[in-house]
Design a protein around this nucleic acid. Structure first.
Lengths: 225, 225
DNA sequence: CCTACCGATCGGTAGG
DNA sequence: CCTACCGATCGGTAGG
């Protein structure tokens, strides 16, 4: 419905990409750095998060997001700085929210296996519930531009510390490598939305199965509770 | 370096997408259905497989592939029918090759845990070795067009039968759900390239760790070998 | 937040 | 396999 006429292209003044040359990169998030445009902005973040989660970074266009939020594509840029910044912001906020939820879930528990179970339950819940901003955008790496990737990875490492601590406390048999153990566990949890099929088992049961598989006690001759 | 001049757009004859209306869809693979253009075609498949594996479906352009293979973008279409067909063909061939390798690896073995270990070792090897066509394109779903996805899933199910049979023979404790067990295991194996970091452990050791985690014997009070 | 664009890039094609 | 394109779509922008 837009720009299709060649005749109107009258000596278009050459514009180079000088935007935001006044300090800050395209990854620096909000246009307005106060909370001003808050509510509408939140809606954009949630809509975008869902689309990114479903189709990946590259296959989700600014136009898709604008459509769903009921704006024209250009108008989005009143609220966001760039597609990249939008994605990074969603990603970081989702991880922050997830970190809080997981920490809260394990905090009252003392037994290491109980803590692992609680963390897994929480993560499965987070990944499978398309609620607000705790969304499965945790594993969209392949289609993301390289510069964005480094921003994502830094935040990722931060988040995974929680699990490093949990795994450290587990009384695992010596032959298990805790680093690999943590990586494998996180991979399953973080990609839950990709392998989970709404079916016979509840989310808690799924989490229970994961822990049942990952549960190995150092004391020889002991496996499950 | 191409089409930039408006003046040359002289009453461009309207062409609609009538291509290949003579039977067959865009997913039907080769242009020449004999082996004619074989060698060059093989090169295209391998180059494309690597790029798809690295950047995903959407972020890999026909131009990227053509560049690497030393052709102009349009020339690719002498060898392939469409980007979609190319991807599906690579995917299916990779799965066929993987199926053969895994079957061959477990065939001489009788013990169910030995068979699982051999299958895991083979899968890790396949996913981590960017050799020819046995490549980690097994988990590019998010950025792929919906029609392509169904073609992929059918082939996927076929492949996963191998693991269904292996898991069926495992003397697992009753509380473990074999379906979930298989899904989780396959997820780790299929995405090995995403979580593996070249490091202290060899591929075989990685496979060993996976099996160590997934190994649970029904006989109470027994865990590892 | 809309109007009205831009330049780049995409998958793909006709004709040689 | 190249030349020479096409129409669609992309992220993004100036100016209101």
């Amino acid at each position: 419905m837009v720009a299709n006429s060649d005749e109107m292209r009258r000596a278009a003044p050459r514009r180079q990409r000088t935007a935001r040359e006044h300090g800050g990169t395209a990854l620096d998030a909000p246009t307005t750095d106060d909370g001003q445009a808050g509510e509408r902005r939140q809606e954009i973040l949630e809509v975008a998060a869902q689309l990114f989660a479903e189709h990946g970074y590259r296959s989700t266009s600014i136009r898709d997001i604008a459509d769903r939020v009921g704006m024209l594509p250009g108008s989005l840029y009143y609220h966001i700085r760039s597609k990249e910044a939008l994605f990074v912001e969603i990603h970081d906020k989702a991880l922050d929210a997830a970190a809080i939820r997981v920490r809260d879930a394990i905090e009252p528990l003392a037994d290491p296996w109980d803590r692992l179970l609680a963390a897994c339950e929480e993560m499965v819940e987070i990944q499978l519930n398309p609620g607000s901003l705790t969304l499965p955008i945790m594993n969209i790496f392949r289609s993301v531009p390289p510069e964005v990737k480094v921003a994502l990875l830094r935040k990722r490492d931060e988040f995974e510390t929680i699990f490093r601590l949990i795994v450290e406390d587990l009384p695992l048999p010596a032959e298990l490598d805790r680093s690999i153990y943590r990586i494998l566990l996180l991979r399953l949890l973080n990609t839950a939305d990709e392998w989970y099929h709404e079916g016979r088992l509840t989310r808690r049961e799924i989490a229970g199965q994961i822990v049942a598989i990952f549960r190995h006690d150092a004391a020889r001759g002991e496996t499950q509770a």
